[in-house]
């Protein structure tokens, strides 16, 4: 069976969930071969647990010092040497950018934000704020896709991967955009927004940065991540990186709770594919109710504290 290359994304020293999902998809297409660029060796075990039969490890100090291009060079070299059946990349900003550059180098079509990839290479994408489902194919080259987070449930399939060291020579062009500093902004103990199985978001209705404590409290009680509408981030209620929607993150959790969010189409673009949607809004006409599985028409400042109290009580 041909190899299927999966580019590994490591965050906080751990393989991220989207990578495990990509490995899960890769297994149905061929032999999953994980590609680790400039990351710690201890991720190999996790990759094996999720079915990677091989781990290509490119670990040179300088691979970390430049934006995107070195990872493209590693992948380009592996595609040329291993003739894989497909290349899967987690669909983060960086992942999409790597896929784009790789597509140019290989003159190979690229499909972005793919939810499913069938054995025959047909990809499923959900576009236009979740309103349209597209089936598409790469017609030049192999399927080169970025896999949208929360598309599948990662399932283990333990193997012991063979680790294959990879060495690459970076060109001057690879070194043209240098990363001089990386700053991790504290997100506390909450799960990563795009990976969380529960997301609790607040909108303009929350009213202030201080009131966002209510949103955080409910999120913490449910073990979820906190999100925000653009009106909330633009008003400075919550940091921009937590924005959900067309110009923010796309989330697809098991449960999405919208507090004081009207449900504008651009917000829906980022959360419409959530499994269960719950909304609290004092306006019975708010469009968010059109997609909510459960809605409470009421003042969030009464409903949310009461709900929090009840959850605490039930938890004992």
């Amino acid at each position: 069976m041909a190899e299927v290359l999966v580019l590994v994304k490591v965050a906080d020293g751990k393989v991220n969930k989207a990578t495990l999902e990509a490995l899960t998809i890769a297994r149905s297409l061929g032999e999953p071969a994980a590609v680790v660029v400039g990351a710690p060796a201890d991720v190999v075990e996790t990759l094996g647990e999720y079915g990677a039969t091989k781990v290509y490890a490119a670990d040179a100090e300088e691979l970390r010092d430049y934006l995107v291009a070195p990872k493209v060079t590693v992948l380009e070299q592996l595609v040329r040497e291993a003739s894989p059946a497909a290349v899967l990349i987690p669909s983060t900003q960086e992942g999409k950018e790597i896929a784009g550059r790789l597509a140019v180098r290989l003159d190979n079509g690229v499909l972005i934000d793919v939810n499913e990839l069938a054995v025959d290479g047909t990809a499923t994408q959900v576009v236009f704020a979740g309103g349209t489902i597209v089936k598409s194919r790469v017609t030049r080259g192999i399927p080169l896709v970025t896999v949208r987070p929360s598309s599948v449930t990662p399932t283990p399939a333990p193997t012991t991967p063979a680790v294959v060291p990879v060495s690459v020579t970076l060109s001057d062009a690879d070194k043209a955009a240098r990363v001089v500093e990386r700053v991790v902004e504290a997100k506390g103990a909450r799960p990563e927004l795009t990976e969380a199985s529960i997301v609790v978001s607040g909108g303009r209705g929350v009213g202030s940065a201080d009131n966002f404590k209510l949103v955080e409290e409910l999120a913490d009680l449910l073990g979820g991540a906190v999100g925000a509408s653009r009106a909330a981030t633009d008003s400075g209620f919550y940091p921009h990186q937590f924005q959900v929607g067309q110009t923010g993150k796309t989330v697809s959790p098991q449960l999405y709770v919208a507090l004081g969010i009207s449900g504008a189409i651009q917000h829906r673009a980022g959360m419409q594919t959530s499994k269960t949607i719950v909304a609290v809004n004092k306006d019975a006409e708010a469009p968010i109710f059109e997609l909510a599985d459960f809605g409470v028409v009421g003042d969030l400042f009464a409903v949310v504290p009461q709900a929090a109290e009840e959850i605490r009580k039930r938890k004992g």
């Binding site: 109710f289 997609l291 409470v296 504290p305 009840e310």
Partner: peptide, 29 residues
């Protein structure tokens, strides 16, 4: 280098239950 084979409208989500808060909305939630 890529082609759309087919496309369809995603069925709209059906709205579910909705309750008015008259003091017990949080509990219902």
């Amino acid at each position: 280098s890529t082609a759309v084979v087919e496309h369809s409208k995603r069925p709209p989500r059906a709205a579910g239950t909705r309750v008015e808060d008259s003091g017990e909305g949080g509990l219902a939630l």
